[in-house]
Simulated scan of single mutants.
Amino acid sequence: MGMKIRRYLVAGFMGISFSVMAQQNRIDMMLWDKNVGADQAKAIVEKADFNRDPAITVYKAAKPNGKAIIMCPGGGYGWEATGHEGHDIAHWLNNQGVTYVVLKYRLPQGNHEIPLSDAEQAIRLVREHAEEWGVDPSKVGIMGASAGGHLASTVATHYTSAATRPDFQILFYPVITMDPSYTHAGSRTNLLGENPSADLQNRFSNELQVTPDTPKAFLILSSDDDIVPVANSINYYTSLVSNKVPVAMHIYPNGGHGYGYSEWFTYKDQWKSELEKWLREEI
């Protein structure tokens, strides 16, 4: 058998092995259950308009290091990019020992309470199953891209209890503000409706909601992002620094918006290396 053929066969077997391992370590779980849980959870479920079934997909690390990351895919609060901003990242993070969770949250359709309630429930579930999944309850982070970054930063600044406070936040080219002068218009409309009040707009402009208790942060963006203005990340970074919240921000010269884990992004190896180092040294 030729060397090239043997390499292809080995690569194929490895691919099958990784796929089988991923399936063995994968858990799909509904986010809400009307028959169990806290009264508050029941109330949210009863009044919600379920246009989809919110759920989490858990990818357990073979050798867990205790850290867990819950990912909120982007999509302008109108859809969810669950591939390159979701499931595609699982294998890489599992290799770092991280238990990785993809959140399928309900789309708000103008009801701003819905995504936040789903994200907080995801954090509760990870902590409730911490021992089973090899997770340290004090090392549960939230991650998001674009509008999912807004959701992640909303959890980080609006969490309602110690049980739903993330221990860290990771944001890819996030929407942060609802200020119409530099927000992402589609995300704003889908989350808050056509004509939100000034109070509601300010409440979900997360650069205005940072406190010294906001969890530490890691931000990634590109200078040429023409979808979500870079001021979203920069103003959030400035607010975190002003409140003495530890934060790292990496700005790449090009790449635009929406690359996630895509191979075409020139600086993919760089952000992976920086995030891996940050998770190792800061969390």
Rank of each mutant, 00 (worst) to 15 (best):
residue 165 R to P: 09
residue 158 H to Q: 10
residue 194 E to T: 14
residue 79 W to Q: 12
residue 50 F to A: 11
residue 30 M to Q: 09
residue 11 A to K: 12
residue 188 R to K: 07
residue 117 S to Y: 06
residue 230 V to D: 00
residue 230 V to A: 04
residue 76 G to V: 03
residue 25 N to C: 09
residue 152 A to V: 07
residue 8 Y to H: 04
residue 83 G to R: 12
residue 91 H to L: 15
residue 54 P to T: 01
residue 221 L to C: 11
residue 122 A to G: 08
residue 172 F to R: 00
residue 200 L to V: 14
residue 136 D to C: 04
residue 9 L to C: 08
residue 157 T to N: 06
residue 160 T to S: 13
residue 16 I to Q: 02
residue 106 R to I: 12
residue 134 G to R: 11
residue 172 F to D: 03
residue 207 E to F: 08
residue 63 K to I: 07
residue 156 A to D: 03
residue 10 V to S: 05
residue 73 P to A: 02
residue 111 N to K: 13
residue 75 G to T: 01
residue 200 L to W: 05
residue 23 Q to C: 07
residue 194 E to C: 09
residue 190 N to T: 03
residue 263 E to Q: 12
residue 265 F to Y: 15
residue 136 D to R: 00
residue 86 G to L: 14
residue 82 T to N: 09
residue 211 T to F: 05
residue 33 D to Q: 13
residue 271 W to L: 13
residue 166 P to N: 01
residue 109 Q to C: 12
residue 186 G to Q: 01
residue 28 D to V: 14
residue 79 W to L: 15
residue 193 G to H: 09
residue 42 K to V: 10
residue 121 Q to D: 06
residue 187 S to L: 08
residue 44 I to M: 12
residue 80 E to P: 02
residue 66 G to V: 08
residue 240 L to F: 05
residue 275 L to G: 06
residue 212 P to E: 00
residue 29 M to T: 03
residue 163 A to W: 03
residue 2 G to E: 05
residue 31 L to G: 08
residue 224 D to G: 05
residue 59 Y to H: 15
residue 172 F to I: 08
residue 231 A to D: 09
residue 173 Y to L: 00
residue 37 G to F: 14
residue 233 S to M: 05
residue 161 S to N: 03
residue 195 N to W: 07
residue 229 P to N: 04
residue 136 D to Q: 01
residue 31 L to C: 10
residue 229 P to K: 03
